[in-house]
Every structure is written in structure tokens, then in C-alpha cells.
Design a protein around this nucleic acid. Structure first.
Lengths: 146, 146
DNA sequence: GCTTTTTGTTAGTTTTACCTAACTATTTTA
DNA sequence: TAAAATAGTTAGGTAAAACTAACAAAAAGC
């Protein structure tokens, strides 16, 4: 029905992602809350939502918040997943949570697929690593016991 | 004499960095070459250079290329160092050189000081790491010798 | 149920960063 | 050295993304 893969601007990606996050967090995404969360004024949100409606990514019922279409949900999820990946990555590097969140927010729009994929690879052994560290500690302990 | 720490836009940082890179590579940074390298048209370069002149970061003698002032060189170096750091970082993650260069170019303008510093920490033990691995191997060897 | 408050939209402006078209100035070259 | 080619600038336009001010609609409170 709609354009499958319109490349959204950074700004529109941010609005779409925020709609998704607010709906996940509070069940509803109101213009006022989107504006507060993104630190812009309400008219900026209104304009952005209008664009997203044209692209078939959101619907909006008067005074009951913005909703995602199926296409919108998919697109929002992609962005959100990038955000989560990048934030986790930065935290792993030792960045504080607040800054990791902020920087992930900037990075999520600009990195190439290749870089994202390599970062995923880097994160993959995440839990495995902890296990490994534990194993090493256990191994050391045993040695001392001997 | 000039504003010490004017925060440059991403775009102006790019122009300034490119002037520096072209001067390092060819000794001269011409409007035409800056335009080609950044994939914009010459009038865009002219306008940007005008801004940088106002900020006291570059000077320009007719038909002999753009030059950096001392303040300009310092600012350009900061950006370039970020670029080099980030490119190396991405390559370390396994990203191809071309993509690492492109993504470093985007990242160099948006990351917070904290994140950059953590990435530096990550890169620091680069050579040291090899040494450490050697040390570990040596240590193991010694144990086996006992 | 009417008034006030809250929420949302519309209209118009600003800034940034790009563009094309047209012009000017310099350098090359015939 | 005059014409042609190259390099640079100026003027004016467009698009994105923000803003303020003014207006409209809905909810809440008395």
C-alpha cells in the first residue's frame, strides 16, 4: 500500500522512535509529551507527525495520541534496536548511562550497516564473556586450593 | 584576538578539516578541490570559507588557496585527531577502511567528550595489548618450567 | 452547562546549508 | 597579447527543521 522503504530524515526517525518509546512506556504518545521528551515545541511535533502520516507510518485520532501503523512499528523498531545496541555498546566501553543514551541517540541515525553489524559482533559474546571471567576465577580458586 | 572557542557547526568543521587535509596532502587547499572532496558545489565552499574567515580560522589570498590561522590549525587538528581516533577504532572492530572513514566522518562531530575519552582508553592498550599477551605467555611458560 | 485550562494546530519567520545561473577574475595557450 | 579555459564569487532560490504568536478544539472544574 505504502512506500516500503522511504529513508527518513534523522529528525523524523527521532519523532517516530519517540512515539514508539512513549507508547511502550505509557501506552500513549501525546504531542505534548513527544515535544517535552525531544525538547522541542509542540508545533514542531505537529509538523513532523503530519509528515509521518503522509508516509503512512502513523495515524492520529484527535486528542488521543499518535499511533503507529504496521509499517511505522517496523521502522520504529529498527531505530529503537539500533539505539539499544549502541547504548549497550557505549556502556560496555565505560561510558556513563546518561551520556551513552545521548550519544546512542545521535549515532543511531548515521552509522552504516557494516559498522552496526561489526558492533553487534562485538557485543555478541557479551554474556559469554562474563561466563568466561567466572570460569577463570573458578579456575584460579581451584589452583589456590590445591 | 579572536573568539577562543566558538562551537562550529558540523558543516563548518568539515570544511575546516578538509582545508587542513588538503594542505597536508597537496600543500594547497583550493576551493575547487575542497568542493570535489566534500561533494558539494563551489559556491557552497565559498560561503563556508567566508564564515570561517569571519571566525578568524582561515585566510584566503586570491587564486592561491585557503590557509589556516593558528586558531584554525588548532581547531582543525582537534577534528582531524577525532577522525583518526574513530577511524582506527572502527577498523579495530573489523569495519572496512572505506566505511570506517565515512562513518568516522559522521561520528567526529557528534560524540561527547566522555565517549571519545572512553574510546581512547579502549585504543590505548593497542600495542600494549600485544605486549601483555606476550607477557602472559612468558608467565605461563615460566610456570611450566617450574 | 458555561468558563477556564489544557492540548493541539495553523500561519508566518528564521537559520542553515545546499543549489543553479550569471558574472568576474585569473591563468593558459595559441 | 588576445581568446579560451579554468577558478572563484555573487545573487537569488529551495528545503528542512526549528521557533513565536495567534487561533481552535477538547477536557476539567465550578
Amino acid at each position: 500500500m505504502e512506500n516500503e522503504h522511504v529513508k527518513l530524515s534523522q529528525s523524523l526517525e527521532d519523532y517516530l522512535e519517540m512515539v514508539h518509546m512513549l507508547r511502550l512506556a505509557h501506552g500513549i504518545a501525546r504531542v505534548k509529551d513527544i515535544a517535552a521528551a525531544l525538547q522541542v515545541k509542540m508545533p514542531s511535533v505537529a509538523k513532523a507527525i503530519l509528515e509521518l502520516k503522509k508516509l503512512g507510518l502513523v495515524t492520529q485520532e484527535p486528542y488521543s495520541g499518535v499511533e503507529l501503523t504496521e509499517a511505522g512499528r517496523m521502522a520504529a523498531n529498527e531505530v529503537l534496536n539500533r539505539h539499544i545496541l549502541l547504548k549497550g555498546f557505549l556502556i560496555r566501553l565505560g561510558v556513563s548511562e546518561a551520556v551513552a543514551d545521548k550519544d546512542a541517540c545521535s549515532m543511531e541515525h548515521i552509522l552504516s550497516a557494516e559498522t552496526l553489524s561489526k558492533i553487534e559482533d562485538f557485543m555478541k559474546p557479551a554474556d559469554a564473556e562474563i561466563t568466561t571471567v567466572k570460569k577463570l576465577k573458578v579456575a584460579k580458586g581451584k589452583k589456590n586450593e590445591l
